Amino acid sequence: MKAGLLMYRVLVADNYPIIRMAVKNLVEQLDNFKVIAEEATGIDASLRAEQGDIDIIIMDLAMPPGENGLITIKRIHEYFPNTKIIIFSSRSEPQYINQAIYNGANGYIFKSSLPKELFHALKHAINGEKYLDNNIMVTKKDLLVIKGGSSHFDLGNYVALSKREQEILPLIVLGYTNKEIATKMFISPKTVEAHKTKIMQKLNLASHADLLHYAVKHRLVDL
């Protein structure tokens, strides 16, 4: 790093280690960016962001099995608005790109693009600007979605859940035990059980099967 430059701390989240390594190597070609953390799931990226030392998150939109990346973006943006989010994904469908930006992402880059696209996204992000991959064509309809005119995702009563309940929900769906969730969240199994009870009550659900159906219906998880 050159003397006098501000160092931006980066978290890379992707379920493939080789992708995380490649992104880290690219990011650190820039003088004032340093990858200080790597995670393999959206939930773990969200939990890592809670430590308050991440300036930019570069994450895939789909890291199955786990939480839908669009949900992760929304929660991180809501609770950590100063943390910039750049999506680095193979998904090119307009509805996913639009919703990612609408939910709070600062940039969207295709994995098939040249490295310069990621560099552009990083530089725009630190200046508080949005950046879309040069290969993305934005229509007037897309702009309406991005600006909040409509949404492709109906979350139902999910929005009534607390931040912690939102983080625990996909882990329950994926079959994690109370002890495993407690270890990941640094809370007690008893607290996990209390959160599970509240989740079921708020969503008006009676069983794990009901919760799985709800999560799939509202696209809260990628299985």
Rank of each mutant, 00 (worst) to 15 (best):
S162P: 04
I136R: 01
D142G: 03
E129N: 11
L144F: 09
A160K: 14
E129L: 10
K147C: 14
V145M: 06
T177Q: 03
Y158A: 07
Y158H: 07
A182D: 08
K130F: 10
Y131E: 03
E129Q: 13
S150H: 12
V159A: 11
I172E: 07
E165W: 03
I136A: 02
A160E: 13
D142M: 12
V138Y: 09
G156C: 12
G149H: 09
T177A: 10
Y176P: 00
N178H: 10
A160W: 06
I146K: 00
L171K: 06
R164S: 12
V145N: 02
L161D: 01
E129T: 07
Y131R: 04
G156S: 14
G128N: 09
H152I: 13
S150F: 14
L155W: 08
V173D: 07
F153N: 08
T177D: 06
T183H: 09
K184G: 01
E180A: 10
F153K: 13
G156R: 10
I146Y: 05
V173N: 05
I172A: 01
I172Q: 04
Y176L: 10
L155H: 06
A160I: 03
D142P: 05
I136S: 06
G148Y: 04
T139I: 12
D133W: 02
L174S: 02
G149S: 13
H152T: 10
A182T: 09
K130N: 12
K147P: 02
T183F: 07
R164E: 14
S162N: 08
L143T: 04
G149M: 05
T139S: 15
L174M: 10
L174G: 02
N178A: 12
G175L: 08
M137N: 11
S151T: 15
N135C: 12
Y131V: 00
I172H: 00
N157H: 12
L161A: 02
I168D: 06
D154F: 15
A160N: 13
N157I: 01
H152P: 15
G175C: 11
K130I: 08
G175M: 08
